[in-house]
Design a protein around this nucleic acid. Sequence first.
DNA 1: AAATGTAATTTATTTACACCT
DNA 2: CAGGTGTAAATAAATTACATT
Lengths: 203, 203
Amino acid sequence: MNRIEIQDLLNNQDCSSLDKDFKNINSQLLEICSNFPKELLSNHGELQMQLQGILLFLTKLVGKNDLSVTLKNEARMTYQFSKIIASLLKSFEDFFFERKEYNDPATSENEFVFSVVTQDMMNKRKESMRPCRGHRFSSNSTETLEDWYKKHHEKPYLDKRSLHELEFKTKLSKMQIRNWVSNRRRKEKSIHVSPVIQDLLQE
Amino acid sequence: MNRIEIQDLLNNQDCSSLDKDFKNINSQLLEICSNFPKELLSNHGELQMQLQGILLFLTKLVGKNDLSVTLKNEARMTYQFSKIIASLLKSFEDFFFERKEYNDPATSENEFVFSVVTQDMMNKRKESMRPCRGHRFSSNSTETLEDWYKKHHEKPYLDKRSLHELEFKTKLSKMQIRNWVSNRRRKEKSIHVSPVIQDLLQE
DNA sequence: AAATGTAATTTATTTACACCT
DNA sequence: CAGGTGTAAATAAATTACATT
C-alpha cells in the first residue's frame, strides 16, 4: 500500500502554490455568482472569458495525478459547478440577445452536470489548511507516541519534559501531542483484550 | 451501537413511497433546468410555485429523523441545489421586469449555498434501488453464510443443495449468495493468522 | 488540564458487478 | 454460466481536532 507517502505529503507541505490558485478560483466563482444578473449585460464577454479560463485551469487540475484525493474531488466538484454556471450564463445570454438558437435541451442536457459546492466547503479551505481533523500523522510520529504511551502505561500523563521530547521527535505541535495522548487514553478504555491473548502477549 | 437496526432497515424495505416522491422531485428539477430560459417569461409564476413546493417537501424530508444517512444527504444536497436555482430564477426575473431591487449581494449571498448533484447521482437512484453495493446484509444472514463457509472450509464451493438452502435461510437471491461466497473465498486469501493464534483457536 | 462529546476526515471492509479464461 | 480478479459504491471503524463542562 502506498498510503503512507500520501500521508507524509499531506503532513509536510501545504500543496502551496496549487492550493493558492485553487482558492483563487473559488473566490472568482463566488464573485461571479454574487454579481450574476447585474454584470450580465455590461460585460458578459469578459465573464465568459473568465469562466473559460477557470474551466481550463480546473480541467488541468483534475487531470493531474499527484493530487490528494480530497483536492481532486473538490476540483472535480468545482469544475462541474463552473460548467453549470457557464451553461446557464450562455442560455440567458442567447435569450437576451434573441439568438434563440439554444441547443435542443434533449441533446444538450445529456451531458449537463450539476454539482454542489457549499459555501462552507469554500471556507474550510481558507481556515484550516493546517492541523486537520482526520488527517493521519506519519507512521513515524505515531510510533514515537505509541512508544511513549507504552512506557508510561501506568500513568499516561504528560509532564513538561515528555512533552518537549515528543515535540522534538515528532515535529508535532504541543496541542497535537496533548490531544493525541488524551485521545489515546480514551481509546485505552474501549480496548478489552481477552485474558487468554493477554497471557500470550506477556510471554 | 445502534447500527444494526439501521442496517436491517435498509435491507428489508425500499423506503418506498418516500423514495418515489424524492425521485419525482429530482425529475421535476431536471425538467426545470432543461427548460430554464425558455419558460422563464411564459410561466415564471408557475415555476416559482413549483420550486416553492419542492423546497417545502425537501425541508420536511431533511427534518425527518428516521431516514437513511444516504437519503438524508441526497435530500440536503438537492435542497441546496433547488435553492440556488430558485435564487437565480428570482434574480433574473427581477432583472427582466426591471424591479432592480435585488438585495445587496453582500448580505443576501451570505446564506447562499451551492450544492452539486451530478446527473449520474440522479440516475443511480433510478437503477439500483435493490441489490446495492456496500449495503450490508443483516447480521443474521451473514452469520448463516459464515457458518456454511466454516463447515465447507475445505472446499468452499456451492452445490445446488447448499445454494437452495442458503437462499431459503437468508432470503437473499442466488446471485447475492454466489457473490458472497466468491468474495468470501477472495477474503480468505488475505487473512493470515499467526500460527500461535491458530493453535489457540484449535483448542 | 482532565474527561467526554462530537465534527471532519481517512482507511478498511462489505456487496455488486464487469471482464477474462 | 463458474471461477478468479479488478474495481465501484456504500458502510463501518479509526484517527485527529476542538468544544464543553
